[in-house]
Design a binder for these strands. Structure first.
Length: 446
DNA sequence: TCTGGGGTCCTAGGACCC
DNA sequence: TCTGGGGTCCTAGGACCC
C-alpha cells in the first residue's frame, strides 16, 4: 500500500507560518522576477486566479481585502520541507521525497483502519509541529494514491484530510468522478487527445484497449492506465539521488544587450551548476549554454539559440566548466540582439568515483579537485560565494527583480536571496539584526 | 511596464555500420 | 521499369512532472 503526502498550497502555507495575518486572505506566491503565480491560497483559487497567472494580471481579480502577492523564498520553503519530510520519515517505510511538497511512502499495516489512524495522526503532528496543512491519500499504486490525496484535499467534509482507496468499489466510484486531466501522467496535450476521442473520465480511460492507449500516448500512458487498474508499475527517482542533468537559468530583470553583462550571468550560472555537481559527488561531460530574447516584446527581433560543448573529460571543476561555458556562449552571442534569459545545463553526468582516468589530464584534474575541495569547504563554512573565480565576480546587471517580500526582517530576507548559504530557523522575527547574522544551528523541530 | 525554474523519460529520424 | 536488409547510436524535440 502506497501513501502520498501532499502539502496544501505549500508556498503560501509556508508564508502563513511567519505571518498569520495572511490566514483567510487571498494570497499568491510569485515566481522568480515576480513573474507569475506559482502557489495560491484557497481564497485566491476561489477568485479564479489560475496557476501561472502573470503578476500584472492579478490586479484584475478583485477581492474586498485585496490579493496579497509575495516574492518566493525557496530556501525557506526547502527548510520547512525538510522538517516535514523528517516527521514523515519517523513512520514511513521507504520514503520517496518526490518534490519539495510531496512524498510517497509505504505503510506499515495490512489493516486499512490502522493505516488511516496512523496517517490522521501524522497530518495533525505536521500541522502542530510545522504549521503546514498536509493531505494524505493511500492506495495500492502511486497513481491511485495521488488521486486519493487530491480528493482528500478538496473535500471540505474530510477534516482529517486522509483518504484510503483500497476497496475495489471505492476505486471504481472515484474513477467515475475523476476527470482525465486530473490523472497523474495526463497533461494538457494528452488530455486534449483523450477528449477528442470522447474520453472524459478516468473510468472511461481504464476501459480502453492497451494497444489503443499506446497509440494515443506512449508506454508511459500504458503504465498510467495499469496503475489506475491497481497494477504497481511506476517507480520514481527520489530527489536525493544524484541528478542526470543540472540546470541553472534566470530570466533577467530587464533586457540586456552588452556582451559582458550577459557573459556575467552565464558565468554565474555555470559556477552554480559546478558547485551543485560537486555537492552530488558527480562529474559532467557536456555543457550547454542557451540565450533567449524576450518572447513578449514585439518591437525587438527574437533570438533563441543554444550551444552544447563536450569537455575534454568528465569534470566537476568550476574552472573547466566556466571555461567551456564561455566558449559555448561566445559561439552563440550576437551583438545585434537583446537578451532576456540565459541558462547553463550540465549533462552526461556520472558519479565521480566511477570515472575513467584520462592519461592526458589526470594531473590537472587532481590539482583542480584539491582546489575545489578547499573552495567548497570555505564557502560551506563562511557562506556562499566567499571564494569564487575572479571572472565570476560580477555586477549582476542581470539580477531578477523581487519586490514583494513578506517581511522587512533581514533574517527572513536571507531566505530569499541566492546568497543565503545557511538560513537559520526563525523563532523571533524582531531579533536584533546582528543576532540574525549568526549561524544558529537549530535542526530540531520546535 | 509587467509573463518562472528545474527536472525525467520516450520517440522519431538521421548517421553510420556490416 | 528498376534501387537490400538489419542493426546501433545519437540527438532534437516533445511530452510529462513539480
Amino acid at each position: 500500500m502506497y501513501a502520498l503526502a501532499d502539502c496544501n498550497n505549500f508556498f503560501v502555507s509556508c508564508e502563513r507560518v511567519f505571518n498569520p495575518s495572511l490566514n483567510g486572505r487571498a494570497v499568491v506566491v510569485l515566481s522568480n522576477n515576480d513573474g507569475c503565480a506559482i502557489s495560491r491560497s484557497n481564497e485566491a483559487k476561489a477568485l479564479g486566479i489560475p496557476m501561472g497567472c502573470p503578476a500584472f494580471q492579478i490586479k484584475n481579480y478583485t477581492d474586498p481585502s485585496g490579493v496579497v502577492m509575495l516574492s518566493a523564498r525557496h530556501v525557506l520553503y526547502k527548510d520547512i520541507s525538510n522538517r516535514i519530510m523528517r516527521i514523515l520519515g519517523e513512520v514511513a517505510i521507504d520514503l520517496e521525497v518526490y518534490s519539495v511538497d510531496e512524498a510517497f511512502f509505504k505503510l506499515p499495516y495490512s489493516d486499512d483502519i490502522k493505516n488511516h489512524e496512523l496517517l490522521a495522526a501524522l497530518v495533525k503532528k505536521i500541522y502542530n509541529y510545522v504549521g503546514v496543512p498536509v493531505s494524505i491519500g493511500f492506495a495500492p499504486t502511486r497513481t491511485l494514491a495521488k488521486i486519493a490525496s487530491h480528493v482528500a484535499k478538496k473535500d471540505p467534509q474530510n477534516t482529517e484530510r486522509v483518504l484510503g482507496l483500497t476497496r475495489h468499489d471505492d476505486i471504481t466510484e472515484i474513477l467515475e468522478k475523476t476527470k482525465t486531466k486530473d490523472i497523474w501522467g495526463v497533461g494538457r496535450k494528452l488530455n486534449a487527445k483523450l477528449l477528442s476521442c470522447g474520453i472524459h473520465y478516468a473510468s472511461e480511460f481504464v476501459r480502453l484497449p492497451k494497444s489503443y492507449v499506446q497509440r494515443i500516448g506512449n508506454i508511459n500512458l500504458v503504465r498510467t492506465q495499469q496503475e489506475l487498474l491497481g497494477n504497481d508499475c511506476i517507480s520514481i527517482n527520489p530527489v536525493d539521488i544524484a541528478h542526470k542533468s543540472i540546470m541553472n537559468s534566470r530570466t533577467f530583470g530587464h533586457v540586456l544587450n552588452k556582451k559582458s553583462e550577459i557573459s556575467d550571468a552565464v558565468l554565474s550560472f555555470a559556477q552554480a551548476c559546478a558547485t551543485q555537481l560537486r555537492r552530488e559527488q558527480s562529474a559532467a561531460l557536456s555543457v550547454t549554454v542557451y540565450l533567449r530574447g524576450d518572447r513578449f516584446r514585439q518591437d525587438l527581433p527574437f533570438y533563441n539559440n543554444s550551444c552544447t560543448v563536450r569537455m575534454e573529460s568528465h569534470t566537476s571543476s568550476t574552472i573547466e566548466i566556466t571555461r567551456y561555458a564561455l566558449m559555448a556562449f561566445n559561439s552563440i552571442y550576437r551583438e545585434e540582439f537583446f537578451y532576456r534569459k540565459a541558462g547553463v545545463l550540465l549533462t552526461d553526468i556520472k558519479p565521480s568515483k566511477e570515472l575513467q582516468l584520462n592519461i592526458f589530464n589526470a594531473e590537472k584534474e587532481a590539482k583542480h579537485s584539491k582546489l575545489m575541495t578547499a573552495v567548497d569547504a570555505i564557502n560551506n563554512r563562511y557562506g556562499k560565494k566567499q571564494v569564487m573565480l575572479a571572472p565570476t565576480i560580477t555586477k549582476g546587471e542581470w539580477a531578477p527583480q523581487q519586490n514583494h517580500f513578506n517581511s522587512q526582517s533581514k533574517t527572513l530576507r536571507l531566505y530569499s536571496g541566492m546568497n543565503a548559504s545557511y538560513a537559520p530557523w526563525i523563532n523571533h522575527m524582531n531579533d536584533q539584526e546582528d543576532k540574525e547574522e549568526q549561524n544558529i544551528n537549530n535542526n530540531d523541530c520546535p
